[in-house]
Design a protein around this nucleic acid. Structure first.
Lengths: 136, 136
DNA sequence: AAGAATCGTAATTTAAAGAGTTACGATCTA
DNA sequence: TAGATCGTAACTCTTTAAATTACGATTCTT
């Protein structure tokens, strides 16, 4: 699996769930996505916390959508995973210089704005739409 | 130095250069930025290719701006470094599934749009402005 | 011309972060 | 009760960027 591909894994899996509402085990999902069941459980666990999917233990257990895919936007998924376009960490320690401070103020507000507009765009598309777009 | 901090190093250094137009060695710059002279030369080397700074060898050599800081935007710097907000690599191999394909098409065009608007915002600020903002 | 200081750059090492793996307890079905 | 699954901690592997080492090329000073 590629680096930092949690969002890709999540969206891919949700797309399949939207197309076919059955319970899937983390093992099945991992096979399909070319990754590992534990990684799947970690990623889908975040989505569960956000009420996007639900999971059941035991045999017959597994994962499925917790709500209508028409009501799940890409932004919901992105935010559930707690990802950020750019990690905007402050200058290291106290003894920073004024140029660095001024720069940081400007750039971080710019990044926050971009982050916001990215989320807005993600919010305009639902999982159901992605799944429907499947056939070109 | 923090990870993926080439842009921060570049902007920080250019800010100082805009405030005080003298020649600086990679060693001086590295000390100030808390990094290594070779790293500085690599980063500023990219900016030289873009005509943002110039360098001279020999004793008395070093780095300085190649043009008016009012005429250097943050976008110039960002693009000179060849950075990208998100590495938007295609699905691995041929045997990908239709859901993944549909997803990739949607998300990559979205990312391209965001990238574009990020650059547009960066283009609205010059190095000179960042330096002037130094005093709050 | 000699010597020193600097850049330019290749090659290698180190460090950090994410993904992958192993392991095992908890839970649930049959 | 047996077996399958999730939940999670702990560890290893991989990848990427940064840091380091090294040294030739250039250029100033004397």
């Amino acid at each position: 699996m590629k680096r930092n591909s949690r969002l890709a894994l999540a969206l891919h899996t949700l797309g399949h769930m939207a197309a076919d509402d059955r319970v899937r085990t983390s093992s099945i999902i991992a096979d399909h996505a070319g990754t590992n069941p534990v990684v799947v459980r970690r990623v889908l666990g975040k989505l569960r916390e956000a009420g996007i999917v639900q999971s059941e233990k035991g045999p017959t257990g597994g994962w499925r959508l917790a709500r209508d895919p028409k009501n799940i936007t890409l932004a919901d998924v992105y935010l559930a995973l707690g990802e950020r376009l750019i990690a905007t960490d402050a200058p290291d320690d106290a003894p920073s210089c004024s140029v660095e401070d001024a720069l940081h103020r400007r750039v971080s507000s710019m990044i926050a704005g971009i982050e916001e507009s990215f989320v807005a765009r993600l919010a305009a598309t639902t999982i159901a739409e992605v799944q429907e777009a499947e056939k070109p």
